[in-house]
Amino acid sequence: MEFLDLPKRTSGTRTYGITSIVDFGVPLKELENILYDYGHIIDIAKLGIGSAYLTPNVDKKVSLYKKFDIKPYCGGTLFEKAYYQNRLPEYTEYLKSLGMDWIEISNGTIEIPLEERLNLVAQLKKDFHVIAEVGSKDVNKEMSTSDWVDEVWSLLEAGCCYVITEGRDSGTSGIYDKSGLIKSDLVDELLKEIDCNKIIFEAPLPKYQMYFINKIGANVNLGNVKLSDVLILEAQRCGLRCETFFMEQNECKLLL
């Protein structure tokens, strides 16, 4: 029975308001139990880092996610490993053999020039839905705000479905500084220049999730969410936590 006025959430096959979880190896049966209850509030599942390459029954895990209408893909580290070893054709065949039709292009660990990444998007979008990630995992590598905006814009223009802002699972790189503080000026500039519905902000901790919900609205796209935090995040989106308590029905800000 519903009796509260809550922020209106997108539903069904969402194009924004996305929750993208990171799977670091949850066992298959445990995952099935989690998805039975919470699959409807998960949209995308990243098999974190290069873990998919070592995951037992990875094909069954991919099929399980798809059964719940969740889009699975492999973390960018596996893409970068394949790129580094000149194995991209083998990698894409591997993804196809698993039934994956989403692929991430990133340069978090190795340097891949933007022009090269744009060429890869042009090639891979023929067979996959492409997600790109901007930002380095190295906390000592800094990008200017203008470079961030240029890269995100260019990757979207090249045909990416979404661009992820790097944050790691620790919240200590990319859009966060090494102490874990959000680079709010950078976020402000991205929101001013880019359609926020096309950005997935990596927000691995509830405090970051609350920041983006309060700043953008209940239907902000959030990534690197832990499976154990999925229900907490949905409660936050719906104004059912102290820090988002006063969100109203009309406060779902879409910065288009």
Rank of each mutant, 00 (worst) to 15 (best):
E2C: 11
D5C: 08
L6Y: 06
P7S: 04
K8Y: 06
T10D: 14
T10P: 08
T13F: 14
R14E: 14
Y16D: 06
I18T: 09
T19M: 08
D23K: 01
F24S: 09
G25H: 02
K29C: 10
E30F: 02
L31T: 05
L31I: 01
L31W: 06
L31D: 07
N33H: 06
N33V: 12
L35C: 10
Y36P: 05
Y36H: 12
G39T: 13
I41S: 08
I41F: 01
I42W: 04
D43H: 05
I44V: 15
A45M: 08
K46N: 06
S51T: 14
S51M: 12
Y53W: 04
L54Q: 12
N57H: 14
D59S: 14
L64G: 09
L64Y: 08
K67P: 11
D69N: 15
K71I: 15
Y73V: 06
Q85T: 13
N86M: 10
R87A: 13
L88E: 05
P89E: 05
T92Y: 10
Y94W: 15
S97N: 13
S97H: 11
D101P: 01
E104C: 06
E104V: 04
E104Q: 07
S106M: 03
T109E: 09
I110G: 00
E111P: 12
P113Y: 07
R117Q: 01
N119H: 13
L120S: 00
A122H: 13
V130F: 03
E133Q: 05
E133Y: 08
E133L: 04
V139A: 14
K141E: 10
W148C: 02
V149S: 07
S154D: 10
L156A: 04
Y162Q: 10
Y162W: 12
E166M: 01
R168F: 00
D169L: 14
I175G: 01
K178L: 05
L181Q: 15
I182M: 08
I182A: 07
K183V: 04
D185L: 12
V187N: 05
D188Y: 02
D188N: 11
L191G: 08
K192Q: 10
I194F: 02
D195Q: 07
D195C: 02
I199C: 07
F201G: 02
F201H: 04
E202Y: 03
E202D: 06
A203C: 12
A203W: 01
L205K: 15
Y208R: 07
Y208E: 03
M210K: 15
F212I: 09
N214S: 09
K215I: 02
G217C: 03
G217L: 04
A218M: 10
N219P: 01
N221L: 03
L222D: 01
N224E: 05
K226W: 00
I232Q: 13
I232T: 12
E234W: 06
R237A: 07
R237Q: 10
C238A: 12
C242R: 15
F246D: 15
E248P: 03
C252A: 14
K253P: 04
